[in-house]
Amino acid sequence: MLASSGCELRQAMYNQEKYEPLEASAFFDDGLSFRNQVTGTVARGQMMLDTHYYQGMVDGQLASTLPVTVSQELLERGQERFNIFCSPCHDQTGSGNGMIVKRGLKQPPSFHQQRLRDIPVGHFYDVITNGFGVMYSYASRIPVEDRWAIAAYIKVLQLSQNVEFDQLPAEDQRQLQ
């Protein structure tokens, strides 16, 4: 009966002989319970033949079109993901003055320069996927769909900061005046 006191204290079942995500493994040489895919295998869903969608390239050139349909949802998703992943350096306006930059990271170029306004949208996808300059690849952090959403959002961001008055609907024109 004495032994039963404190009976909820940790027991064998708390740590079972199974791996939780990212748990260290004593079994594999590299100490990871997570197995990397064997080189050369293609799993279901990994048949990435659509170069436009997966690589942002059309005919070996950066795609100037989106492989996804623009919608409010897509753009909002892009905005959200942009604010999560990009704004620390690029800041939310895309001017390249994020907090990290204020702490010493090399300042990225502002999106609001003509060169980047003119660049095909595939460029942004490509940079997110493969990195650019000191920027690391975000391929492991941002799924393909989200990358296109971010790319589209960057385009909208650029547009919102540099829109021709005449293109605007009357309502917005009124707001400006």
Binding site: A3, S4, S5, C7, E8, Q11
Partner: peptide, 8 residues
């Protein structure tokens, strides 16, 4: 099996 657990 595990009487010390049995109390709860």
């Amino acid at each position: 099996g595990r009487p010390w657990l049995a109390c709860y």
